[in-house]
């Protein structure tokens, strides 16, 4: 299982979403993608739900969000 990590902190919208979507298109079924982002990506959740991805969001102490995304089996 591969783990990829992309940091989109500080990028103006819609660049974070563009970069995450690009990464999702190449995400294999047993890979996980961790997105590090400075605000909760509400619209990304909507895309993930629609395309049957599973995600977990953690709010770090420094106020940064980490979203771990996997394809649902």
């Amino acid at each position: 299982m591969g783990l990829r990590r992309i940091d989109v902190c500080g990028l103006p919208p819609p660049e974070p979403l563009e970069r995450v979507v690009e990464a999702l298109t190449t995400l294999e079924s047993d890979d996980a993608l961790v997105v590090v982002i400075h605000r909760e990506p509400v619209l990304l959740y909507s895309l993930l739900a629609r395309h049957r991805f599973h995600w977990e969001t953690t709010l770090r102490d420094d106020g940064v969000f980490e979203v771990r995304i996997e394809r649902r089996p």
Binding site: V42, L43, Y45, S46, L48, A49, R50, F53, H54, W55, E56, T57, T58
Partner: peptide, 13 residues
């Protein structure tokens, strides 16, 4: 921690 998918699709009209 917020597990997904728990968000309504209506988040994006």
């Amino acid at each position: 921690m917020t597990p997904g998918p728990g968000l309504s699709l209506t988040q994006a009209p």
